[in-house]
Write a protein that binds this DNA or RNA. Sequence first.
RNA 1: GCCCGGGUGGCGGAAUGGCAGACGCUGAGGACUUAAAAUCCUCCGGGGAUUUUUUCCUCAUGUGGGUUCGACUCCCACCCCGGGCACCA
Length: 839
Amino acid sequence: MTEYDPQAGGPVYDPQAIEAKWQKRWAEARVFETEMDASKPKYYVLEMLPYPSGTLHMGHMRNYAIGDVVARVKRMRGYNVLHPMGWDAFGLPAENAAIEHNTHPRAWTNNNIAEFKRVLQLFGFSYDWRREISTCEPEYYRWNQWFFLRMLERGLAYRKKSRVNWCPKCATVLANEQVVNGCCWRHEDTPVEAKEIEQWFLRTTAYADQLLEDLKQLEGGWPERVIAMQRNWIGKSQGATIQFAVADLAGAGTIEVFTTRIDTIYGASALILAPNHPLLAKLLAGSPARADAEARVAKMRQMSVKAEDVATAEKDGFSAGRSAVNPFNGAKIPIWVGNFVLMEYGTGAIMAVPAHDERDFEFAAKYGLPKPIVVQPREGVPLTGSTLEAAFTEYGASVNSGPYTGLESAAAIEKMAADAEVKGFGKRETVFRLKDWGISRQRYWGTPIPVVYCGKDGLVPVPEEQLPVLLPPNPKLTGMGESPLAAEPSFVNTTCPRCGGPARRETDTMDTFMDSSWYFYRYCDPHNDKAPFDSAKVGYWFPIDQYIGGITHAILHLLYSRFFCKVMRDLGLIRHGEPAARLFTQGMVQKGGVAMSKSRGNVVGAEEMARKYGCDTGRLYTLFAAPPEKDLEWSAKDIEGCSRFLNKVFRLVERHAAKLQAAQPTTDSASATEAEKALVRKTHQTLRRVTQDFETRWHFNSAIALIMELLNDVQAQAPLEEKIRAGSLKEILELMTLMLAPMVPHLAEELWEMLGHANGLRNERWPEYDAALAKEVEVEVVVQVNGRVRGRIRVAAGLSEEEVVARAVEEKGVAQHLDGKRVVKRIVVPDKLVNLVVA
RNA sequence: GCCCGGGUGGCGGAAUGGCAGACGCUGAGGACUUAAAAUCCUCCGGGGAUUUUUUCCUCAUGUGGGUUCGACUCCCACCCCGGGCACCA
């Protein structure tokens, strides 16, 4: 590794040689392989598993660098650390790439995995590679199928028709993300249609309340915004459902309406149904407006289901020609159909209260419906029908509301809901925004859904002993039409497990979020072929102590994982109710203001950086350039600075190492010079603050800055060998090395060896700072007059208040500002500051 | 519209009620060198005064108020930027 540098007269820092050397030693000594060990506290640190997509760039690298620092610090702290890595290997990009390059998704995926793994290993991340998993392997996905069957047994998996985005040219379902400006992403002139097709769903709504409630357990451990986003997504509303009888139509029954503002029901001037409301056909039967109405409904149904299109669409509606009866006062109100009423939420019908709801106001204004006022603001100008310019949606006092007139809104809601229950035309209800999780995908590269359809027995689950249902090896992939599995007769045609007769397999595959919902349990027991995992092993390692990943997964992956966790707990497989005690969402690495990604073509390859500067420098850069939770803009110049720093550290140690190898580190300061004492003090102060930054704040950027400062202080003491005795210098350099070890592990190992240690860092513990050595003997105290800095004095640490003030008032700049004035108050912060308040 | 973040030099950022701008980058000047690279040293928020390589004053952390001896930090209101959800009844 050591080339001779004629200028410096010694070996130069050669990161590639050092890194290869230590990675080889770590592998030989199996340093990062972990087993259960009851004698140590456990620590499970995990970075979200990557989708292997080609180039491993600095954005990926940052994520793993953060996790690796945590893993290495915890090891130095004496924890038994589980730190695994695997591959989220199924998914659409592999299938599209396979079509484009005329290859097989498996070949494409495995190439990418090999590439990712090679680069991760080049960076020396401290993974236990024996635990590696790949979700596209049958040994893994058979357990997706197993979980699916367990959910099917419990009624948590079911089939239903649902409204989806449909491209008529592709003849397939599109994800919301694949709808661009209302059209198919591949056929930009083809509007996406809303279509109802049969799909598999997982009943996430069965856990809506728990998913919401348990967020409280995560407070403090998860970022607030992730908790807020999940709460938002689950969207709990409490209210009441009210039954409105249909007037003048025998046998039409009642229309159910959900409302959170039952107190405004006396102001309802219409009922509005969703265009696909099941009762609509009955209401329109025999009506003269029927043909026209059906055409309008058909048009409304074609509207895109994309959220922002729906939100901005103009309100549209028509009268159904019928009326309903307000159960509170018997008033007849007309029934309308409106495009803004969603069948998917609540009951698919609303009561329109134009005076007290913005949407209803807009609808009523367009169609000339009355806007009776039934709530008045508690203060300010009362509302009148002629001056009402916008809906008043706040709480106030009920008016024109029969027996409830005069009640405050909250009291009216309570009383009216209770009365509705007593009288039997309504009940209190809680509604969630969360929908069941649609998992069917008409794609090849995913887990086959393990059910068959038999002409005689109907839907039959594949028996557990027949798992895995394997993907057919050589599919015809076109990216069009239904699932590629449907075109494989050898896959589709099977026998019914129940009657032995001919049957068809389900040809849809599972959403790949299934794969990533439970992968972290598999790491605990990756080669189990009898069960997804051994509960005892998971019991030892779980919950994940620290989960690290991008904010992009704040809802989908993390919500599905939480759902799986609760289902698994109810299946008796695990005992905990939340998968991860702490979550950290790191910022993205950007270039040109946008996240690095292959599709944008703005990636800076991690390998390229490792070749140019060494992987330790690459790691240090991502840790130093910004606090880990913030986005960071890639800078080629800043990484140069990090490289300079590590070079300086290397040269410093290299220059003195030979003389220090035999020395004993010493903390004896009796005969030390002032410079030496100051440097030892600085070292221990740095250690104290770096320890804090690692343990409690994760301010790696500040920790690195502190070590840089220490290095600058050491270098300011030239010539070092004259000013600092060998024992002290060794102590200083060793502590510096240990502090750097979690962030630049290869260089730290090399420095440690240069300092005379033969056994590497693997058994070294994180050092404790020495409070006595860190203590300042002399401090600079700031002197303020009326809160403004007027001078600084150097005094012995711990000097009494009286003495400090006595010294302070003598200070030239201070005295000048005190001249002729009376000190009315003085504030003394020991060893820090004096503030004299003068009148 | 609702819910989260966030606004500090030329740039990334530091400072968790006590010296605003640590540390790094960029830039300027210098040393070494035949030269370059590397390395090392000095300076680097604005305005002003001054006895001008000195000493000091003053303004400055999105804006305006407030609390406090003291506010980048806490409170209130507003502006701007980023993200999430969005006819959710």
